[in-house]
């Protein structure tokens, strides 16, 4: 149904301005971008640069901190796309918890603080070629497909499209069953993470009764500390 609603809208756009001119009558083209587009492109460049530094830097903690910049930039992009609730969820969950989890993981695996020369594996040139080929193909396809498509960001009367009221209504009216299934999945992930992390401490506490394995666990820890 939404496609039916959108189709005359898009047809109206392309009908009002032919696609090959670029400068539409009702919509500014590439040559006269609006303020939202300029801000979007600038924040997008910052996000992309932070993502590039994240995957190329040799300092592991710096990679996690640049990931904060990239994820925060994506949150700003959500705000520019009028998806306010998603933006704050992004800030809360990604920047607030996922990056903290990653930093804890780096700390617990004793990541080197300085530059680690072996952060990249040997197939980085193959990876570069593959990612550049994928980027070229996808950018070509996407630009060719959505050359004459505009997002209408104008606010109608009432709450915005991405506000928490609209999102909550859609989530708890149409998406209740996936939401509950997702809560069960989160519970399973929580229990699984606890089980995975706790098994070693059980072995460590249980090894106190058995003298044979008492040597093995600290030896393993010491070996982990060396390398």
């Amino acid at each position: 149904m939404s496609a039916l609603l959108v189709q005359p809208l898009v047809g109206g756009h392309t009908g009002a301005a032919p696609a090959h001119t670029g400068l539409a009558a009702g919509h500014p083209g590439f040559l006269s971008p609006s303020g939202v587009e300029i801000v979007f492109v600038l924040v997008g460049l910052v996000t992309l640069g932070a993502a590039l530094v994240t995957v190329t830097t040799r300092q592991l903690v710096h990679a996690a901190l640049w990931l904060v910049v990239a994820l925060g930039g994506i949150a700003v992009e959500y705000l520019l796309l009028t998806a306010e609730f998603i933006a704050w969820v992004q800030v809360l969950i990604y920047v607030g918890s996922v990056v903290v989890l990653i930093l804890f993981g780096l700390m617990l695996t004793r990541a080197p603080i300085g530059r680690s020369p072996d952060a990249d594996s040997g197939n980085r040139w193959i990876a570069l070629v593959v990612s550049l080929a994928a980027a070229a193909t996808l950018v070509t396809v996407v630009v060719d497909a959505f050359r004459a498509t505009w997002i209408d960001l104008e606010e109608r009367t009432g709450p915005g499209q991405g506000s928490s009221e609209v999102t909550g209504t859609a989530l708890f009216r149409h998406w209740v069953l996936p939401f509950e299934a997702l809560s069960v999945l989160l519970l399973a992930a929580l229990v699984g993470a606890i089980v995975l992390s706790k098994r070693n401490s059980d072995a460590g506490s249980g090894s106190g009764s058995r003298p044979g394995s008492t040597d093995s666990v600290p030896a393993r820890r010491n070996k982990a500390g060396e390398s």
């Binding site: 083209g29 590439f30 971008p33 609006s34 939202v36 587009e37 979007f40 492109v41 997008g44 996000t47 992309l48 993502a51 590039l52 994240t54 995957v55 592991l60 990239a70 994506i74 992009e77 520019l80 796309l81 990541a111 680690s116 072996d118 952060a119 990249d120 594996s121 197939n123 980085r124 193959i126 990876a127 570069l128 593959v130 990612s131 550049l132 994928a134 980027a135 996808l138 950018v139 996407v142 630009v143 959505f146 050359r147 498509t149 505009w150 997002i151 960001l153």
Partner: peptide, 27 residues
């Protein structure tokens, strides 16, 4: 806003992530 801007940004971010997955050594 032109739809190509977020779409191209998403594509480029995805490819940066693809490079990271293929090229990085630390898990």
């Amino acid at each position: 806003m032109h739809l190509a801007y977020p779409a191209v940004l998403a594509v480029l971010l995805f490819c940066v992530g693809l490079y990271g997955v293929l090229a990085r050594r630390n898990a």
